[in-house]
Simulated assay, not measured.
Amino acid sequence: MVVISEFQKIGIGLIGFGLFFLVFGVLLYFDSVLLAFGNILFLTGLTFIIGFRRMAHFFCQRHKFRSSFFFLGGVSLVLCRWPIIGMLVESYGFVLLFRSFFPMALGFVLSAVNIPYLSAFFSSSSSMV
């Protein structure tokens, strides 16, 4: 069993609130205050979960410099009240940062067919037509 510390529990909550504010900010036509607050909460939660040293090491790796520049530059643009351009730049940096993670996430989602309770939703034998 994985032991989660109190800081990591706080970090999970901060990331959840950050994602909520990001989605809510996009739904309200790119409200710059909500997007900035969501970005700050998301980065703070990430720091609480993995620690400051590991987060700094993740963003400062030599081969991830360009993607970190775009991601943090997009956050800075959102904080300077250019929300649409900032979110586009931030999204591009996010895709570049986590592109090695996407195949693993896709494999997990595709393996949901083998999970007992979720397999009932994905069964192909029953037809709606």
Rank of each mutant, 00 (worst) to 15 (best):
F70T: 06
G51A: 02
F37N: 01
S119Y: 11
F69G: 12
V78I: 15
S123K: 15
F121P: 05
V109F: 15
V89A: 04
F24E: 06
H63C: 01
F7W: 11
G16P: 01
R54S: 05
R54P: 03
T47P: 00
S126D: 07
S67L: 02
S125R: 14
S91L: 15
R81W: 15
G74Q: 08
S111K: 14
L22R: 02
D31Y: 03
F121I: 11
A36I: 00
L77I: 07
E6W: 02
F17T: 05
F48E: 05
M1N: 04
F70S: 12
I12F: 13
F94H: 13
S5T: 14
F21C: 02
I15P: 00
Q8I: 01
F102G: 10
M87E: 13
S127A: 08
R66W: 08
G86W: 13
I84C: 06
F24H: 06
D31I: 04
F52V: 03
F69W: 05
S126V: 11
F94G: 08
F65T: 10
I40N: 01
I84K: 14
S125P: 07
P116S: 14
F102N: 11
G18H: 00
I4W: 07
L106N: 12
L88K: 12
T47K: 00
C80E: 09
M1R: 06
I12C: 02
F71D: 03
